[in-house]
Design a protein around this nucleic acid. Structure first.
Length: 478
RNA sequence: GGCGGCAUAGCCAAGUGGAAAGGCAGGGGACUGCAAAUCCUCAAUUCCCCGGUUCGAAUCCGGGUGCCGCCUCCA
């Protein structure tokens, strides 16, 4: 089955194949380290984490690079506010980034290049552009000559004329054309700066990505990603710079995730309309947030609401409840204490079908909502089996299903392991409590046994009185 | 103003020509001492509206309406 990916460059889904053998080289624009992350950043990180996982599942070796912007106007301004250097500022938010990403279950990229650590490469690239006539220096600033790059606008599907029509761009008398953009910015008094052929200064925003992507992944890469809001001007400018410099296609596939909204409006620092990831993580587990982020297609806008996270939590619970039940069933924690017979062939055709449905959905431009629905259909089928009397072969099937759900879930980064476990003593204690409660129930002392159940529920332990015995499970902490 | 996208049940969300997935919430039923979990069942007789193409359209075409994004830093 062929994987299709929507390519912003051509506004359609295209069959994916890597440029070079089995290796996929993927660069995703990361964050500027000047402030806290919000759910929008989390979405981009999770989406591309899933894309990477799925590419690996398909058998590709993925070289994944995502950058940190650690010098720009905002960095400088913020550092000044706080009375620290931009390097301290970067350090602080980088630590937060890794911390929170880990909680979201986002795997580490192969490289996290930073602009300030690639000044030499950036200068070299600008020099090359200058040599080829695509860059001009005005008084210590260096700009890219957009007019000379005939393909300008191919990503955002707008011509320069169309862009001019709505131009709100600041007119600078230094620039030859309003859409020319800075490759190198002359240092102002007291700003961090580096020596360059054009005098002291720092890189413009777009150039770092071109330069670092090419350094770590080569002049032509397979996938370049980021949020939709980066299409113009950031990615458009990256294409212009890179392709002007090398004469080669910079990236084969341009992949953009939709934005997270709140009350229907884009989540953004600048407007104050945002929920920080830290805040969200105080209330919900990383997995719940991750599930929420994958509950709609990655290119659609995703509206955050308190309720949407609660729904994500409940949905996740449904899967975990099943996984727990199967686990207990298999391990003999229930009244059925038989061993798994190794040789009985499992009846898994229905589950194979659903597994294929999952893969087909993912093949179709990473359709995670459709993929998740296949998981839920598995959950239902498995529950059906559990409702009937358990046979040896059905026990094998259940084990298969459980493994399948975890395996497929690992692509999405959900349904893995879980969550709190009780320590051994606590678990023994709980069992004693359940035993005693059982005696009460046999004596029909409902008030007291209900009180025990209620109080346990209050601390997050749900008792379920089944026919044979009482089971317990830890409720998700949301 | 220019470019692009979206509009599917109370909510979230798949489906892009042939009987409208899935989740959450809710109603009814089974199970239970009662719950919980689970199962069964109900829930869109206009898939934003109006035309058109077709044997057949949520799905294609044309025209509206509404919302969103980009055109400025932004995941």
């Amino acid at each position: 089955m062929a994987l299709k990916i929507y390519n912003t460059l051509h506004s359609k889904k295209e069959v994916f194949f890597p440029l070079r053998g089995n290796e996929v080289r993927m660069y995703v624009c990361g964050v500027t380290l000047y402030d806290e992350l919000h759910l929008g950043h989390a979405r981009a990180a999770v989406v591309f984490d899933v894309i990477r996982n799925y590419l690996e599942y398909k058998g590709y070796r993925v070289n994944y690079v995502t950058n940190f912007t650690d010098v720009d106007d905002k960095m400088i301004q913020r550092a000044k506010q706080l009375g620290i250097t931009i390097f301290d500022l970067a350090e602080k938010f980088m630590n937060e980034y890794f911390n929170q990403m880990q909680r979201l279950g986002v795997r580490k990229a192969n490289y996290y290049p930073r602009a300030t650590q690639h000044i030499k490469e950036i200068i070299d690239l600008i020099k090359l552009l200058e040599k080829r006539g695509f860059a001009y220096c005005v008084n210590g600033d260096v700009f890219f000559r957009v007019k000379k790059f005939s393909n300008y606008g191919k990503l955002s599907h707008q011509s320069l004329e169309e862009l001019f029509a709505g131009a709100r761009i600041e007119v600078s008398e230094k620039k030859e054309q309003p859409f020319d953009f800075a490759l190198w910015k002359k240092a102002k008094e007291g700003e961090p700066s580096w020596e360059s052929p054009w005098g002291k200064g720092r890189p413009g925003w777009h150039i770092e990505c071109s330069s670092m992507a090419m350094k770590y992944l080569g002049e032509s890469i397979d996938i370049h990603g980021g949020g939709r809001d980066l299409v113009f001007p950031h990615h458009e400018n990256e294409i212009a710079q890179s392709e002007a410099a090398t004469g080669k296609i910079f990236a084969n596939f341009w992949v953009h995730n939709g934005l997270v909204t709140m009350d229907g409006e884009k989540m953004a620092k600048s407007t104050g309309n945002f929920l920080t990831l830290a805040k969200a993580l105080e209330k919900y587990s990383g997995e719940v947030i991750r599930y929420f982020l994958l509950s709609s297609h990655y290119r659609s806008p995703l509206n955050y609401s308190e309720n949407s996270l609660k729904e994500a939590s409940s949905s996740l619970d449904r899967v975990y409840t099943l996984l727990d039940r199967i686990n207990k069933e298999i391990s003999g924690a229930t009244s059925f204490k038989k061993k798994i017979p190794p040789k009985i062939p499992p009846m898994i055709s229905k589950f194979e079908e659903l597994s294929n449905k999952f893969i087909q959905a993912m093949d179709d431009d990473f359709n995670t909502p459709a993929a998740l629905s296949a998981i839920f259909e598995m959950v239902k089928e498995a529950n059906l089996i559990l409702e009937k009397s358990i046979s040896e072969s059905s026990r094998v099937t259940l084990l298969e299903v459980s493994n399948k759900i975890k395996k497929l879930g690992s692509i999405l980064g959900v349904f893995q392991g879980k969550k709190e476990k009780l320590n051994q003593k606590t678990e023994e204690l709980l069992k004693i409590l359940i035993e005693v409660r059982d005696k009460l129930r046999k004596k029909r002392e409902w008030d007291l046994s209900d009180e025990i159940r209620k109080k346990l529920k209050n601390i997050g332990i749900q008792l379920e009185d089944r026919k044979e015995e009482t089971e317990w499970r830890i409720q998700s902490s949301n």
